[in-house]
Amino acid sequence: MTLLRVKDLHTHFISRNLDNEIRIATALNGVSFELSRGEVLGLVGETGAGKSLTAYSIMNLLKPPARVVGGTVEFDGRNLRDLQSDDMNSLRGSEIAMVVQNPRSSLDPLTRIGEQLVRVHTAHSDATAATARARAVEILGSVGIPAPEERMQAWPHELSGGMAQRVLIAMALMNEPKLIIADEPTTGLDVTVQAQILDLLRELVETRNVAVMIITHDLGIVAHYCQRMAVMFAGRIVETGNVNSVFDNPAHPYTRTLIDATPERLRDLKHKVHGGGAPPNLYNLPTGCHYVERCRFADDVCNDPVAMEEVGAAHFAMCSHISAVRDGWLS
């Protein structure tokens, strides 16, 4: 069952320059994807590709000058873009929860973590403080925090990075969300702790049937923890499909470059990695494919609009030269 259906989402940063002319940075240019319960989707791409912006646009958490200017976000049968801010508030933190990259800065440093967990719960339900407390202790225990009863009294600064990330996940779970958006949940954590956190997320998917969207630039996480992946470039999803299918048969030249640039591939690879370069100018994007300036297969056709094309079972890519890229990549 599809839980989240994002269709043709456009987000722009609209500002004025010194001459008072309107300037528009087209940061998201028609992002579409679906996510079902019990599924983990990995959203990858380089800095500035619009990964986090996609999450913030879905959650309706944008601040000016950023604005969603088109598209629909359908969550559990409702279009989130039509919701009043009160309704959206009651959805956020209860049905959709977000786990952000820097756990320390997203906890209130002046409130004990137990109190923060209780607040999240009482804000979204009629539960009494006592039941909320009991639930907080239970959830803290279930995310692998030892001695949860005592930890309720801890201040955020007393927690290590891994523990703080667990508290944040516990906070996300307080209201039994249907969807968890994890924005770089393990960046900055050590590999051993990273594994613990990711295992915890996977367990939640299996036991509670939640849907998870992991935003990351670590292809190792995508390869081992996600079922489907979507590769973003300059505000568009340029390739999407099952993880195995995309890793085995990447169709878009950008996806290929990304996979070639992982340390594992670099070791086996004889040729150099092509295609590193500056991201395109969001104020003046190419008319057709956004990757045209960095692509070695680019020609005149690439300046025409491109569409998603099916390149395999449930595997789509946005490129006009898919067969040429496949045959000619190594040359």
């Binding site: 051993t192 594994a195 670590d218 996480i221 390869a223 890793f247 992982t262 594992e264």
Partner: peptide, 12 residues
């Protein structure tokens, strides 16, 4: 430590 490393290859 090495066993916790995630290689970027779904078949690994």
């Amino acid at each position: 430590l090495l066993s916790a490393h995630l290689p970027a290859d779904p078949h690994a």
